[in-house]
Write a protein that binds this DNA or RNA. Structure first.
Lengths: 200, 200
DNA sequence: GTCAAAGGCGAACGATCGTGCGCTAAAGTG
DNA sequence: CACTTTAGCGCACGATCGTTCGCCTTTGAC
C-alpha cells in the first residue's frame, strides 16, 4: 500500500513521530507514552512507529534528546552571542521563563516533567536526561562564576547553589501555570531569579 | 482461606496498602502504579487490594490524600504553635527543606512528583491534588502577609510571588538530590528560601 | 530491465492492565 | 445457636501493552 518513501521522507517521518511523542509525553510522561497511542495519533501502524527505533526505550531516548535540543535552542541559542557573565545570565533567565510559559508542548516543559518522572529510577533514559541537565547546570555555573569574577555578582554567592535555585524556580513554572492557573508565573519566576542572583 | 478480619485489622490493611502505594508511586508515578504490582508487593491478591477502594482512581485519590496529610504532618504540624509570621515562616522553610531531603518515600516528595505528573491532565486526581496544594499555598501567603504587616519582611514583597518561589525551591530538591546526587540540596534550598523572603 | 534495500502495514504473540463475579471463612448480632 | 456481614481469594474477561514476523511496494543502484 504505502511502500518505501525516500530517505528524506523517512527522516521526516522519524521527526514527526518524535514531535508527537514529545507532545504526548509532556502530558502523560515518557512512561505513559505508548506505541499504540502514538501510532493512532500519527495514523500509522504500531510496527511502522516501532520500526524506526527498534524498542520503546530507544524511542524514549530519542525523545529525550529532541526535548533537550529544543530546550537549548529556545533558551541558550538566543543569548549565546550576548556578553559573557551577567548580561548573558539575565538573558538566559528571561528566555527560560518565557520558554516555560510557552514551551510548545501541551503538558509544559518536558525537561522539568521528565526530571521529576525519572529522578527516582534507574536506566538509560534517566542517565541520558541526567547528563543533559547536568551539562546545562555546568553552563549556568560557568556564567555565574564569570559574572562574579567580573564583579557583577556578589563574591560570596555560591555558583552551584545559585544554579540549583535558578533551575528550581524555572521548573516551578509548569505546575504553577497548569495546575493552579497562575498566569503571572513567568513574571514571578523572572523576578525570583533576579533576587536569587543578587544576594547569597 | 483468609476470611474476614476485625474492623481494626481491615483499617490496618487499608493503611498498609496506601503506604505501599505511596512508596511505589513516588518512584513510578500515580499512573505507573498498578494494582498487580501493588498486590505482589503486599503478598495479596489483586481483588483483595481493589476491593478496598472499588477502582484504581479511588485508590489514587486516597493515596493523594495520605501524601498530603503526611506533608502537613511533617512540615506544618511541628511549627503550627510557633509565633505567627516570620518565626513560623522560617520554621516552615527549615522543616520543608529537611522533609524534602528525607521524605520517607524512596522516590522523593510525592507532592512535588504528583504535581508535575498531573499538572497537564484533567480528572479527579488532579483536582484533589490541586486543591491540597492550593490550601498550602494559601497558608504560605497568609504567613508571609502577617510577617510583612509585622514589619519582619519588606512591604514591597508580593506574598503570592514569594509563596510561588518557596514552593518551586522546595520542589527542586527532589531532582537535585535523586537525579544529580546533590547532597547539599537541602542546605541550598533553605538558603535560597531565606533570600527569596528577604528581598522582593 | 533487474535486483537488493528498506519503509511501512497487518496480524499475531505472551504479558499485563483494570475490573467483575462467586466463593470461603471469620467476626459481629440476635 | 443461627444468621448476616464482609475481608480477601481465585478465576476469568476484554483491552492494551511492547515486540516479532512476514509481506508488499517503492526507491535507488547497476
Amino acid at each position: 500500500m504505502t511502500g518505501r518513501r525516500s530517505a528524506v521522507d523517512a527522516l521526516e517521518t522519524r521527526a514527526a513521530i518524535l514531535r508527537t511523542a514529545a507532545d504526548i509525553a509532556s502530558v502523560d510522561g515518557l512512561e505513559g507514552l505508548s506505541i499504540g497511542r502514538l501510532a493512532t495519533a500519527l495514523s500509522m501502524s504500531k510496527s511502522g512507529v516501532l520500526g524506526q527505533f527498534g524498542s520503546k526505550e530507544e524511542l524514549q531516548l530519542e525523545t529525550v534528546r529532541l526535548v533537550l535540543a529544543n530546550f537549548v535552542a529556545r533558551v541558550w541559542e538566543p543569548v549565546r552571542h550576548a556578553e559573557r557573565g551577567l548580561p548573558r545570565l539575565t538573558g538566559i533567565c528571561e528566555a527560560w521563563a518565557r520558554y516555560a510559559m510557552d514551551p510548545g508542548y501541551p503538558g509544559g516543559c518536558c525537561v522539568a516533567t521528565f526530571s521529576h518522572e525519572f529522578d527516582g529510577r534507574p536506566g538509560r533514559v534517566r542517565d541520558e536526561l541526567a547528563t543533559g541537565v547536568r551539562q546545562w547546570r555546568a553552563t549556568l555555573v560557568r556564567e555565574i562564576t564569570t559574572a562574579i569574577s567580573h564583579g557583577d555578582l556578589p563574591p560570596d554567592l555560591d555558583p552551584r547553589q545559585a544554579a540549583f535555585t535558578l533551575d528550581a524556580i524555572a521548573s516551578g513554572i509548569g505546575p504553577a501555570r497548569l495546575l493552579h492557573g497562575d498566569t503571572d508565573a513567568g513574571t514571578w519566576a523572572a523576578q525570583a531569579m533576579r533576587t536569587a542572583l543578587r544576594a547569597p
